[in-house]
Design a protein around this nucleic acid. Structure first.
Lengths: 206, 206
DNA sequence: TGGCAAAGTTGACCCTGGTCGATTTTTATC
DNA sequence: GATAAAAATCGACCAGGGTCAACTTTGCCA
């Protein structure tokens, strides 16, 4: 039997993750204690800590799983022939839907992603590198089609949009934007601004 | 003695805050327990909770105090006659200096400000309403001087810049940007992008 | 197979944030 | 000043995250 040890480890980790899915979605993250998690997974409390360093790490792993759905949805929109702005809006809308439906998870996820407290660096980075991989091709295409300046570094462009999205989500979390509709409108306005520029159009240059 | 009660309350609250300044700056936030705080302030543990609802609230109050310095520095730059982008950069640079020097506080502050967990809503809102009050006049002036489109809602413009700033700070926290210099350069590039627009300049419109 | 080292598991334990009812202090009223 | 209501203080207590030294299982080799 090739590696009983490995096999067990994989099974235990899976059990923890499954327990997490079950308990987090029913009781919420805060209301789920490590002890709960352990007994639901049928293992001892200490064992959990030989698979995850902190509770929040379990949470991130959980989120990664949940986000696969979103990711799939995003990939779908990717091939449709719309103007860049609409594509971006569709994608971020998709993302926001998840947050809107799971505010608790969304909040914690964004907290950890943007201002990570633990040493989740690799993990948190992996999480939004996914976005990079997803969006960069889209931006490249937009460049080719003349919807986007070609002299810009795509990383920065991506950061630009992502920053605006973050700001809007934060505004929703803090109650400055109330409905899903508000969020979308604000996002649209900001993206429009970003594309057209905040400075008045030059009379004609060159 | 007009209101011994009020007097005592004020004194106690001050004592807590002073203890917070002393302990947070020497031991850090996490390493300072509520009990530490209480004994340093010369009061009982429970008393703290009749002045602050959560530990994080003490922290925010502490930050508000620390940020007065930054605020003052910002006000100074406000009257100098530079192009909008340089002014903005100066301001955010100032702000980042605080974060750079106090990463732990900066991180927690931004976490609470953007994705508040407790019911700090009023407090967290107050914190960045300050920025509004500070920056809006600057933007208005820029509008008058033709550096900024006049058809834009200033709230959105402000959100735009703030969002970009946040993104850059987050990139620093997550190790994507390493030095203070990197941060400034990225911020400059993003602001430039925002002003000029991401879309290619229209040949000539209207 | 026997036996031993390494890997993995465990729950008692520690510490901390936050609660709560009992106790003390202040104010108002007579 | 006496007294009662209201406000404020307090620390024992609780629950949860995280640690660790003892213990069990697995893999390996003679």
């Amino acid at each position: 039997m090739a590696g009983k040890r490995e096999q067990n480890k994989r099974r235990t980790k899976l059990a923890i993750l499954e327990a997490a899915v079950r308990l987090f979605t029913t009781k919420g993250y805060d209301r789920t204690s490590i002890t709960d998690l352990a007994s639901e997974a049928g293992i001892g409390k200490g064992t959990i800590y030989s698979y995850f360093r902190k509770k929040s790490e379990i949470f991130l792993a959980f989120c990664e799983e949940q986000l696969e759905v979103t990711k799939a949805a995003i990939i779908q929109t990717e091939t449709s022939p719309m103007p860049l702005i609409d594509r971006l809006l569709a994608i971020y809308h998709q993302d926001f839907r998840f947050i809107h439906q799971n505010p608790e998870f969304g909040r914690l996820l964004m907290r950890e992603t943007f201002f990570p407290l633990d040493l989740n660096l690799e993990q948190s980075r992996r999480l939004d590198n996914r976005y990079m991989a997803l969006l960069v091709p889209l931006l490249q295409k937009a460049q080719l089609q003349g919807e986007l300046r070609r002299d810009l570094e795509l990383t920065l462009v991506l950061g630009h949009f992502y920053g605006l999205y973050t700001m809007v989500v934060s505004a929703w979390f803090t109650g400055r934007l109330l409905t899903e509709e508000d969020v979308l409108m604000a996002l649209h306005a900001l993206f429009e601004q970003a594309l057209q520029g905040l400075a008045p159009p030059r009379p004609h240059q060159s």
